[in-house]
């Protein structure tokens, strides 16, 4: 899903550092919150470990839909682990992905920020719409759509702000091209929304405490 698939060197060093610094600042805040809430997140750490493994496994698999895209599972990470642990999960996934050759090292900062937007938006929508949409499947699905759409917007904003070295296209042409990428990426968001909805509904049926929901 939303992930900058450009090689190292596409952004200037200044922009690489800017996105890394902002991403590290966000991770720093997440670590500070975790330290403050010492012990409260014990159970969630186990869940976070499992969703990290699952998200990493799926993140690398290219699905032959609309030419080729991959799932992120960031909304599921948000719903199950929360935004604080979710921030650490997306950092780990992006570092491990770069380590195996999926994505550039210099783009980890930017990609962490994109995934972080997905996590935060999906979490807020899932928690915030509890009264309006009590059904877990559709609430998780809608949160997934919203999170992934905002992640895509963040991706375009980062690319447009940074500029790409060595291209002759005007910013308008790049924006038009990236808009098509958003539309294609959102196509796979349907699969991700269905998957997230089904997993969340299943967990909600057997262990609603994990979701912070009362038993139906």
């Amino acid at each position: 899903m939303a992930h900058i698939h450009l090689e190292d060197g596409s952004f200037t060093l200044t922009w690489v550092l800017v996105w890394w610094i902002i991403a590290l600042a966000c991770i720093g805040i997440a670590l500070w919150v975790l330290r403050r809430e010492k012990g409260k997140n014990q159970k969630k750490i186990t869940i976070a470990a499992f969703v990290t493994a699952a998200a990493f496994a799926l993140f690398q698999i290219n699905i032959p839909l609309f030419g080729g895209v991959h799932l992120n599972l960031t909304p599921l990470v948000a719903i199950l682990a929360g935004p604080v642990l979710g921030a650490l999960v997306v950092l780990v996934i992006n570092i491990l992905s770069a380590a195996i050759g999926h994505g550039g090292w210099g783009l980890i900062g930017a990609n962490v920020l994109i995934n972080l937007v997905e996590v935060v938006v999906a979490y807020l929508i899932f928690r915030g719409s509890r009264k309006i949409i009590p059904d877990l499947f559709s609430r998780a699905g809608i949160a997934t759509f919203a999170g992934l759409f905002c992640g895509n917007l963040m991706m375009v904003a980062i690319i447009m702000a940074s500029g790409i070295q060595g291209v002759t296209q005007t910013p308008g042409q790049v924006l038009a091209g990236l808009s098509l990428i958003i539309a294609v990426n959102m196509g796979i968001a349907i699969v991700e929304a269905l998957l997230t909805g089904l997993i969340v509904r299943y967990i909600g049926n057997i262990r609603p405490d994990i979701l912070g929901e009362s038993k139906p």
């Binding site: 450009l6 290219n62 080729g68 895209v69 291209v167 091209g177 990428i181």
Partner: peptide, 15 residues
């Protein structure tokens, strides 16, 4: 048209 992720990115950005 049918493109992989990286091809789509390169086409969009002019790389």
């Amino acid at each position: 048209g049918p493109m992989g992720i990286e091809e789509r990115f390169n086409a969009a950005t002019g790389l």
